[in-house]
């Protein structure tokens, strides 16, 4: 049991379930300027910062898939975009020599904005209309800023869920991805 819980994928699910519960209850009701804050996206990007590109992609896929399962939008859409965001965050982070908290916040904010902007474009591409609108700018800005603030909380959580120490930026064993 302990071995199972120590596996990154199991930890991701254990972290993802309460985070998703928070997303579908508290954040669905408490909106900032009419915009729903996106904690699942913040966690995906934080996983990329904590564990590198591969871990970010895996965590983004898992969190996005969990989110898709409670939405009416096509299954796999958030998984694809969140996975890409996690991978991108890990890639950006790998270019830096150090990873201070302000840089984490900046990367989380930037990647959140990018993912929020790209999601309706991909949706439109696969035939879901109505997501691209003038409101998108406001949503992008609010989600970016809020997730930048969330980064101070979600990066340590992501680090724990991927079983990575504070100064360790290596991915878990390759078997995880196979």
């Amino acid at each position: 049991m302990i071995d199972f819980v120590n596996k990154p994928v199991a930890r991701l699910i254990l972290v993802g379930l309460p985070a998703l519960a928070l997303q579908t209850t508290f954040f669905a009701e408490v909106k900032i300027f009419g915009v729903v804050l996106q904690i699942m996206l913040a966690l995906s990007i934080a996983a990329g910062l904590a564990g590198g590109s591969e871990n970010g992609a895996l965590a983004g896929f898992v969190f996005g898939l969990m989110f898709d399962l409670v939405l009416t939008s096509p299954l796999g859409l958030s998984a694809l975009v969140y996975g890409a965001a996690g991978w991108g965050a890990g890639y950006l982070h790998s270019r830096a020599l150090e990873n201070p908290k302000w840089l984490n916040a900046l990367v989380v904010g930037l990647m959140s904005g990018l993912a929020t902007f790209v999601l309706p474009i991909v949706a439109n591409w696969i035939g879901v209309e109505g997501w691209l609108s003038s409101r998108l700018t406001k949503v992008t800005i609010v989600v970016s800023l809020s997730n930048a603030l969330f980064s101070f909380l979600v990066v340590p959580v992501a680090r724990w869920s991927l079983a990575i120490r504070r100064n360790q930026r290596l991915a878990p064993p390759a078997e995880v991805f196979l």
Partner: peptide
């Protein structure tokens, strides 16, 4: 390959 697999899985699910 693992990353590509995740992306392809997403597209398949969609």
């Amino acid at each position: 390959r693992a990353i590509a697999l995740l992306a392809l899985t997403s597209i398949l699910l969609i």
